[in-house]
C-alpha cells in the first residue's frame, strides 16, 4: 500500500517536473527571443529625438511606460508615440526636428505631464535641456558657407541665438562668408535650426548627444 502510494506520488511529481521544465524552457526561449528583438528595436534612429529631460536611452526605455501623457500636453504637436512597426521602441515618445521641432516652452509641460522618472522632473529651466546637439553636416551645401547666399535661416530660427549659434565670419581666397557655428554647451537640441534650413536636405541637423561625444574630456577623467 505504501509502496503504491510512493509510486503514484513519484509519477505525479515526475509529471509536474516534466511539464514545469517544458514550460520553463519554452518560456525562456520566448523571453530570449523577445530580448533579442528588443535590442535592435530599442536602438533609436538618429532622426528621432527624445523629449526634454529624457534620461539616457537605456534608463529611459526602462522608466517610460508609453502612456503618451507628454504627447498630449505638448502644445505644438511636436511629440508623437512610436507606432508598432516604426524603428523605435513601440509606444515611446519622440520627435523629428525637421518635421516639427521643440518650441522650448518655458514651463516644459511634457516633463510635468510625465508620471514616471523617464522625463527628469529636476529639469525646470528649458535652456538646460539636452535633447541633442546641432551639427552643421552640410558644409558643402550650406548656402552661407558655400557663398551662394547670405542665408541666416538656422541662426534666425534659434530661440537662444548668439548663445547656442553664431554666424562666424571667415575669409578664404579673398572671399568673405559666414559659417553657422553651434556652441554645444548652450545648444538644447530643439531642432528649430534643422526645421528652418532652406537647403532641401537640412545642412544643419540635431544629433543625439551620445553620437557627438563633445564630453570626451569627462569620459577620460
Amino acid at each position: 500500500m505504501s509502496a503504491r502510494r510512493r509510486t503514484e506520488f513519484s509519477a505525479e511529481r515526475r509529471r509536474f517536473l516534466t511539464q514545469g521544465a517544458q514550460a520553463a524552457g519554452s518560456v525562456s526561449l520566448v523571453g530570449f527571443l523577445l530580448g533579442a528583438y528588443g535590442e535592435p528595436a530599442a536602438s533609436t534612429p538618429v532622426a528621432a529625438l527624445r523629449p526634454p529631460g529624457a534620461l539616457a536611452e537605456d534608463a529611459f526605455l526602462g522608466a517610460c511606460v508609453r502612456c503618451g501623457l507628454c504627447v498630449r500636453d505638448c502644445p505644438y504637436d511636436t511629440l508623437r508615440l512610436a507606432r508598432f512597426g516604426e524603428p523605435l521602441a513601440t509606444g515611446t515618445p519622440y520627435f523629428v526636428a525637421r518635421d516639427i521641432p521643440c518650441e522650448m516652452c518655458e514651463d516644459i509641460p511634457c516633463v510635468k505631464a510625465c508620471p514616471t522618472p523617464a522625463l527628469d522632473k529636476s529639469l525646470t529651466d528649458i535652456r538646460a535641456a539636452d535633447m541633442g546637439v546641432a551639427v552643421v553636416t552640410g558644409t558643402d551645401t550650406c548656402f552661407s558657407i558655400t557663398g551662394v547666399a547670405h542665408c541666416v535661416g538656422c541662426y534666425e530660427a534659434c530661440p537662444i541665438k548668439d548663445d547656442a549659434i553664431t554666424m562666424e565670419m571667415k575669409q578664404e581666397h579673398g572671399k568673405v562668408f559666414f559659417v553657422p557655428t553651434v556652441h554645444r554647451e548652450h545648444c538644447t537640441g530643439c531642432g528649430k535650426c534643422e526645421a528652418d534650413c532652406l537647403y532641401p536636405e537640412a545642412a544643419i541637423k540635431v544629433l543625439p548627444r551620445a553620437l557627438v561625444r563633445h564630453d570626451i574630456g569627462q569620459d577620460l577623467a
Partner: peptide
Amino acid sequence: GTLTWELV
C-alpha cells in the same frame, strides 16, 4: 533594464 514585454 527595459520594458521588454511592452514592445509586443
